[in-house]
């Protein structure tokens, strides 16, 4: 219960933002929060709040497994620091690089393969798997 108190502001923000399928469960000293945010802006706001409540997010007492709502065909912005995002033949860095998307380039979501890898298509028609954390639904 204490963890839910600590992150009360975050949990109420998740509700205010209308996070879908919001699930909150405390287990072995870790609060598990999962759901689907409506937009990247909501997602960023929730993560910013997490950083405020738990400085440096170092306590290891929150597992915020929230993704952003995106269906096949959605536009995704490449959010690497500055480098190109590799597009690979298989959902792993073992996969051969079959294309690249530049920083801030927009690609199309083909399929959410798993939590970490999404299949995307570039404007040039290159299709393959890219690491989901560097893609933000627009």
């Amino acid at each position: 219960m204490a963890l839910q108190d600590k992150y009360a502001q975050l949990l109420s923000a998740a509700q205010t933002h209308g996070v879908e399928n919001l699930s909150v469960a405390e287990q072995n000293g870790v609060l598990h929060v999962s759901g689907t945010a409506k937009s990247t802006a909501d997602y960023d706001a929730l993560w910013a709040l997490y950083g405020q409540i738990d400085p440096n997010m170092a306590s290891g007492d929150l597992m915020m497994n929230i993704d952003v709502k995106a269906a096949a065909g959605a536009q995704l912005k490449v959010t690497t620091d500055s480098t190109n995002l590799n597009i690979r033949s298989t959902p792993s860095t073992e996969g051969e690089v079959v294309g690249k998307a530049a920083h801030d380039e927009v690609v199309t979501l083909v399929e959410k393969t798993d939590d970490s890898w999404w299949k995307v298509r570039t404007a040039q028609g290159e299709e393959g798997y890219a690491y989901a954390q560097y893609l933000s639904p627009m």
Binding site: W47, M57, G60, A132
Partner: peptide, 26 residues
């Protein structure tokens, strides 16, 4: 950087992995 720290935490969360970031400096 703070931005990359957040990115790291997001990567860990989406892989559902608990972490120890006490050795991660700003």
């Amino acid at each position: 950087t703070p931005a990359n720290r957040m990115k790291i935490m997001q990567i860990l969360a989406s892989a559902k992995v608990q972490s120890d970031v006490s050795g991660l400096m700003d």
